[in-house]
Computed example of a mutant assay.
Amino acid sequence: MRWITRGARFVWHHKLVSCSMAFLVVLAFAAVFRDAVTPYDPYSTDVSLRNLPPLSDGTGWLPHVLGTDPLGRDLLSVLVEGARVSLVVGLLSVLVSGTFGVVLGLAAGYFRGRTDDVVMRLVDLQMSVPSLLIALLVLYVLGPSLTNVVFVLAITRWMVYARVTRGLMLSMREELFVEAARSLGASHLRIIVRHMIPNIMAPIMVLATLEMAVMLLTEASLSFLGLGIQPPQSSWGLMLAQGREYLTTAWWLVTFPGLAILLTTLSINIIATWMRARSTESPRESGAVVEPPARAPLVAQQA
C-alpha cells in the first residue's frame, strides 16, 4: 500500500508532470498497439469519404472521430500511425546520436590532449554550419526515407552530447574517488565504466529527453518540406504538408497533427525540466527522509 500512497502523493504535488507522463504513456500505448486501438486501417483509402468533418458517420464500428483526409482515410488512424513513425524516428535518432556523442565526449574529457583537440575541433566545425542545412543537403543526396532521416538526425546532433559529456568528465576526473581508483591500478575502461559513467547519467538522461523533443520537431520539419518520411508511410509533419492545401476548407487536417506535435513536445519538455530539478535538488527538497546527525554524549565534568 505504500507505493500507492507515494504514487497518489506524487500525482497531487506534480499535477502538470503527471498529466504529461499520462499523455506520453497513452500515446506510446496507442502507437505500439495501433491495430487494437485504431478503428480503421490507416492505409485504406476511399475517395468517396474524402475530407469528412469530425464526428462523421463511418463504415466501421466507430464514426470518424477526427474526420477523414483527402484520400478518405480515417484521420485518427492516420494520426496514430504517424505517432508510431515519429516516435520511432525520435527514439532511434536519440539512441544513435547519444551513443556516438557520449563515447566521443568520454574519450575527450578523460584522455584530454590530442584526443580532446581532435574531438572538439570536429564539434566546432559541425556547429559552425546550421544543422537544418546539413540535413537538407544530405537528404538531397541520399534521398528521403526513414533510415536516412534517422541517420541525418543522428549526425547533426551528436556534438551536443559530446560537449556536455566532455565537460562533465573534465570536472570529475580530478575527484578523489577517481584518483583513488587510478592509484589502485584500475584500468581506464574500469574507471570510466564503473566510477564515472554512473555519476554522469542523470544530466545525460535529461539531455536525451530534451533532444527527443528536438528530434520530433526536426523530423516534422523535414517531412513538411518533402525530405523526410514519404508516402505511403505517415508522420505528423507529412500530414501537415498534405493538409495545408485544404486549410480553408478542411481545418481538421492540420489542426490535429499540429496539436499532436505541440502536446508531445510540451510534455517531453515538462518531464525533462522536472528531471533536471530532481537531479539538482537536495534530499530534503526532494521529500527524502533525512536523519538528524547523531549527537555526541555529554560528559559531565568532575568538580
Rank of each mutant, 00 (worst) to 15 (best):
P70I: 11
A202T: 10
W236R: 02
V152I: 08
L238P: 00
L49M: 13
A162Y: 01
W236N: 07
Y43S: 14
L217D: 00
R34D: 13
V149D: 01
R190M: 01
V164Y: 04
A213D: 01
S48C: 00
A250G: 08
T248I: 12
E291K: 13
F29V: 15
L75Y: 09
V119F: 00
M212K: 03
Q301Y: 08
P144G: 10
L55Q: 14
F151A: 08
W158I: 08
M201D: 01
V96D: 08
T147Q: 13
V164T: 09
P39L: 13
L298K: 13
L225G: 00
I268D: 06
W252R: 09
P39S: 15
S97W: 13
P231D: 08
F177P: 02
L139E: 07
Y40P: 10
D69K: 10
V47K: 06
D117K: 09
N148W: 05
F29H: 05
A30M: 11
E175G: 08
S131K: 06
P257R: 05
M201F: 11
P257E: 06
G113M: 06
L225S: 00
L52Q: 14
S86H: 05
M127W: 01
G109L: 03
F100L: 15
A36C: 11
P144V: 02
E245C: 04
T68S: 11
L168V: 00
L222Q: 05
R244Y: 13
F23W: 09
V299K: 15
I134G: 06
